[in-house]
Computed example of a mutant assay.
Amino acid sequence: MRVVCVGLATVDLVQRVERLPGVDEKAEALSADVAAGGPATNAAVTAAALGASVTLVTAVGAHPLGALIRADVAACGVSLLDAAPRATAPPPVSAVTVVRATGQRTIVSRNARGADVTAPPGLADVLGAADIVLVDGHHPALARAAAACGRPLLLDAGSWRPVFADLLGAADVVAASAAFRMPGAAAAGTGAALRAAGVRRGAITNGPDPVAWWSGDRGGELPVPGVPAVDTAGAGDVFHGALAVALARDPDLLPALRYAVRIAGIRVRHAGPRAWLDAVRSQRKSAPGHAPRFHT
């Protein structure tokens, strides 16, 4: 199974604290991790942990911080196609702060703002061989190339980006967050607005609350089992990566959403950006050749 994830790669500094500091206050971190991050990158790491052959298409560049991204995704079993291998500017850096007691997080990041990335050589071959392509909307030229490749397209719609106007009609499935707002759409009308934009199959996640979904004329709400949240950073990205794997196996949306919810539930039970992967891999090894099954 081949999954291609197209979008953002960042360097994430993740620190756990007892409480968020106020203005002009300092807080001593209980722990600190440095890892590659970004929606497409986190989804790629997830898909690889679930047994897929994964390529991440993004912009990393030649800055020393880029070496950290390269090493981390390689250690996670993800191949990298760098659209800007000679760029000397540092890759985006995200500061992630997680509150120990609740697992809630705050993030400060520049994302890919200001980056001018074009489709790299070999992109068409990589996309053409995919069973499914996930796009997060960062690096618009890469996103448009992915949408035009003719392979099943999963759109990660975390927040509105202008390029989504070109992508929504091409997506086989749109997975939006509760914070996603299309221009001109009412606060409670995201699903209706997406349907009006031609999205035939989609889902809207809302943290621990039920996932609203539709597939053609079918639809409803999928409950999210309650789990003790230790760290919610990247949980939505993990959901999207697991959803890509499930849809690549079987395009039926509702079972794929159930699978993605279970995998995201595993992620939030573990502190840090990578510790949760061991739980996924150990269960995969216990059932080789089969999709892992998790119980929440």
Rank of each mutant, 00 (worst) to 15 (best):
99 V>C: 02
66 G>Y: 00
57 V>C: 15
78 V>H: 05
86 R>Y: 12
56 L>N: 03
84 A>W: 02
73 V>N: 03
55 T>R: 07
82 D>V: 03
61 G>D: 01
103 G>D: 07
88 T>W: 12
66 G>M: 05
61 G>P: 00
63 H>T: 04
101 A>M: 06
80 L>T: 00
85 P>H: 09
70 R>L: 07
87 A>G: 13
62 A>T: 10
88 T>K: 15
72 D>I: 07
65 L>W: 11
58 T>F: 06
63 H>D: 13
64 P>I: 13
56 L>H: 09
77 G>E: 14
63 H>W: 11
83 A>F: 00
55 T>W: 06
93 V>D: 06
55 T>V: 14
99 V>I: 15
96 V>R: 01
56 L>C: 03
90 P>R: 14
101 A>E: 13
100 R>Y: 10
87 A>N: 12
57 V>D: 07
91 P>M: 12
101 A>K: 01
93 V>W: 09
98 V>M: 03
56 L>G: 03
76 C>L: 12
80 L>H: 12
62 A>M: 09
94 S>T: 13
56 L>M: 10
98 V>E: 01
63 H>G: 05
77 G>K: 09
72 D>Y: 04
68 L>D: 08
61 G>Q: 00
76 C>M: 14
78 V>L: 08
91 P>A: 11
61 G>N: 05
95 A>C: 11
95 A>D: 13
69 I>M: 07
76 C>N: 13
86 R>L: 15
62 A>F: 11
87 A>P: 07
